[in-house]
């Protein structure tokens, strides 16, 4: 995975690298950890079970990490779901969950390449 790959995926890599004090290698190392973050699985699982408290905590944690790495294309749907879950809104989350799953999958593939 290169910086360009990430940029094409939809990450604000300039901002992310600046936050890593200009160290591209360190930035990429952190990005590669993201797909394995257990909070993705917890989020999907708890939404399916209707456990919005746990879902909110997982989404909230993902929001912080994705924000820090500026992975915008994945951060955006996570931000949306976090806001909805914060007020424990009972609704159909499947579209948002699908979008997050899709982007998570793409990132995982990218990181594996």
């Amino acid at each position: 995975m290169t910086i360009d790959d990430l940029r094409r995926f939809g990450a604000d890599t300039d901002e992310g690298i600046r936050r890593c004090m200009g160290n591209e290698g360190f930035y990429l190392r952190l990005v590669k950890m993201m797909p394995n973050d257990q909070n993705f699985a917890i989020l999907f699982d708890s939404i399916e079970k209707g456990d919005l408290d746990t879902a909110f905590e997982a989404a909230h944690a993902l929001k912080g990490a994705l924000g820090n790495l500026s992975i915008t294309s994945l951060l955006d749907p996570v931000l949306k779901i976090t806001d909805l879950l914060r007020s424990r809104t009972r609704m159909d989350y499947s579209d948002l969950v699908s979008e997050i799953r899709k982007k998570h999958h793409e990132l995982a593939e990218l990181c594996g390449s």
Partner: peptide, 16 residues
């Protein structure tokens, strides 16, 4: 910090 990425990033910044 329980979020590994966040803790590593902050630690990296401060470790200077």
């Amino acid at each position: 910090e329980d979020e590994f990425v966040n803790s590593q990033l902050l630690g990296f910044i401060l470790s200077e």
